[in-house]
């Protein structure tokens, strides 16, 4: 791997987990794809052809520069551009917390994709709990924003997300909870700062 590839994986530890769960050549759709870094990585690591969905102008132009297929539509208004089960996997990488219509977007993911991969910063991590206990909104590596400038609207914990999956009748196929890029097996909702899930319909 190139030095920049290593830096990327250090910055986004969920990328490696996502790649590892994908079959080679899987067709992927990345919602809120930013500059297309994940899609580029998946193309290099898994020969997975993909498309990104992104609303921000600068990010869309960055995708075009990075030679990543990008579709400038608002994922909040649904994925009507995409037919049922037209993708092997639909990914929502560290975007869940910024989504407004959470249930709608998650349902759409499993309409369009055979499976969904979702990663998000775990609000249940002890440092967040401690900061709240001390009377402050949490700011950390995984949640780097002050409360007044955060783009995030829906924080959740590992336990919360699993509750939502149950109510949406999503089946959790795999779960990986990480802290500083390393898997956390003991008390994941307390000791993990980043959670990655692979889900299918029941």
């Amino acid at each position: 791997m190139t030095p920049s590839g290593q830096a990327l994986l250090a910055a986004r530890p969920d990328f490696a987990a996502i790649a590892q769960w994908l079959e080679r050549g899987a067709r992927v759709l990345d919602l809120g794809c930013g500059d297309g870094a994940l899609l580029r990585y998946l193309w290099q690591a898994r020969a997975a052809p993909g498309y990104g969905v992104e609303i921000d102008d600068d990010s869309v132009i960055a995708c075009v520069s990075n030679d990543v297929n990008v579709l400038q539509v608002d994922l909040e208004s649904g994925l009507s551009l995409f037919s049922d089960h037209s993708f092997d996997c639909v990914i929502l990488s560290q975007t869940l917390q910024a989504v407004r219509h959470t249930e709608g977007v998650l349902r759409e993911m499993l309409r369009v994709g055979r499976e969904a991969i979702v990663s998000f910063p775990n609000f249940g991590h002890w440092s967040a709990r401690l900061q709240v206990a001390l009377g402050r909104m949490p700011v950390s590596e995984a949640l780097p924003y002050e409360w007044y400038e955060t783009p995030n609207v829906h924080h959740c914990t590992v336990a919360d997300f699993e509750d939502l999956c149950r109510s949406l009748r999503f089946r959790i196929r795999e779960r990986l909870v990480l802290h500083h890029g390393k898997p956390v097996r003991l008390l994941p909702n307390l000791l993990g700062s980043l959670a990655v899930y692979r889900c299918t319909t029941q």
């Binding site: 498309y51 102008d57 297929n69 579709l71 400038q72 539509v73 551009l81 037919s83």
Partner: peptide, 21 residues
């Protein structure tokens, strides 16, 4: 334009789409 993009996606063509405000 989205009709065109949708038809291309259904055909698994390479496509990027910009909707400029």
């Amino acid at each position: 334009s989205r009709e065109i993009v949708r038809a291309l996606l259904d055909n698994r063509r390479i496509v990027s789409y910009l909707e400029i405000a």
